[in-house]
Design a protein around this nucleic acid. Structure first.
Length: 331
DNA sequence: CAATATTA
DNA sequence: TAATATTGG
């Protein structure tokens, strides 16, 4: 879900050509979840192979990644590791919603209410271990690098941008601002196209709001994050005002009449989730030649994809491959 | 969501 | 050719 910062940040519109030649660290969980949610039939049934195994994420990964590469974008996917103890409540809430939605989906389907069915199907999506492993396998075959984070993928992806290994993180959530990502790209899709590709820069956010990153995290903690519920009635605008006035989260909490017990976890611990996350340096970022035979065997052989479509996607990957190569050969 | 087929 | 509808797995 992510922190609700929509009302206090103002991303700028960008174009695909602004991303040409850039390395983009893609939040895998965020992206794959979106594929699972939206690549469905009208009644909400996901794409499946003949054995009933969901293939929506394969479709999304193959076609989006190859199209991005055709546009000169160099993608790295970053997967989540273990989630923080304090995320437990968020996680179980999501499981609950998923369960209820699955039931409502089946019910609506039984009653022939197509639109209603799809609405709930979308919310029933689940990132199983199979989905994650299958996604990694496809990325390996495609020659696309991915990194397994120790903790939050968004933290690891943000670190990559801080290190200069990637130009921006691609995610729909604003959380990467808290993790310190200097640049975040939103709406990195192919069909959504020109209109709503967005770039958000941490420096400009902090400058505009006239606060520090630590204070931005404090605002988030008042509003609520995946790791704490925040304070009821405090949205991003009120939260921002409070932190600017009180400077410190402890004073801000007191000001709202909330006790620290009601507030929940120690703000210092919460802050550190964002300011000092566990990061791995055990990775290699390298785009390899796609294994055409392997991809076709996997997608077409095992999962019933059309060979023609898959072949044309592979062609797009190779296109970037050759331009990269000729560049490397130059030096 | 993205590719493709269909239509205006 | 571009906008719109449908299929993909």
């Amino acid at each position: 879900m992510g922190v609700k910062f929509k009302d206090i940040v103002s991303p700028k519109k960008i174009n695909f050509k602004d991303l040409n030649g850039r390395v983009i660290a893609i939040d895998a969980a965020n992206t794959i979840y979106q594929f699972l949610s939206s690549i469905r039939q009208r009644d909400g049934t996901p794409l499946m192979d003949e054995h009933g195994r969901v293939t929506s994420h394969f479709s999304g990964i193959l076609y989006r990644t190859s199209s991005l590469m055709e546009k000169g974008i160099k993608p790295i996917y970053v997967f989540d590791g273990k989630s923080h103890n304090l995320k437990g409540e968020t996680v179980s809430k999501r499981i609950q919603i998923r369960k209820e939605s699955e039931k409502k989906w089946k019910d609506a389907l039984g009653k022939g209410e197509i639109k209603e069915a799809r609405k709930y199907a979308v919310r029933s999506s689940r990132m199983s271990l199979d989905v994650v492993n299958g996604s990694k396998k496809l990325m390996d075959l495609m020659g696309i690098p991915y990194i397994q984070a120790l903790g939050e993928g968004e933290a690891q992806a943000s670190y990559l941008v801080q290190q200069g290994e990637a130009w921006a993180v691609a995610s729909q959530d604003y959380d990467c601002l808290l993790f310190g990502a200097p640049k975040i790209v939103r709406n990195l899709t192919i069909s959504g196209n020109l209109a709503d590709l967005e770039l958000m820069e941490l420096e400009s956010v902090l400058k505009t709001l006239k606060i520090t990153r630590k204070q931005l995290v404090d605002v988030a903690l008042l509003v609520g994050t995946d790791f704490n519920s925040g304070i009821k009635g405090i949205g991003s605008k009120t939260g921002l005002k409070l932190i600017k006035k009180e400077k410190e989260i402890y004073n801000a909490i007191k000001k709202t009449g909330t006790s620290f017990e009601e507030f929940g976890p120690d703000p210092k611990i919460l802050r550190n989730i964002f300011l000092d996350p566990e990061i791995t340096t055990d990775y290699e970022i390298k785009w390899k030649n796609p294994d055409q035979k392997g991809i076709i065997e996997f997608l077409c052989g095992e999962h019933g994809f059309s060979e023609e479509r898959v072949a044309s996607a592979i062609k797009k990957i190779k296109k970037m491959d050759s331009t990269q190569k000729s560049l490397e050969d130059w030096f």
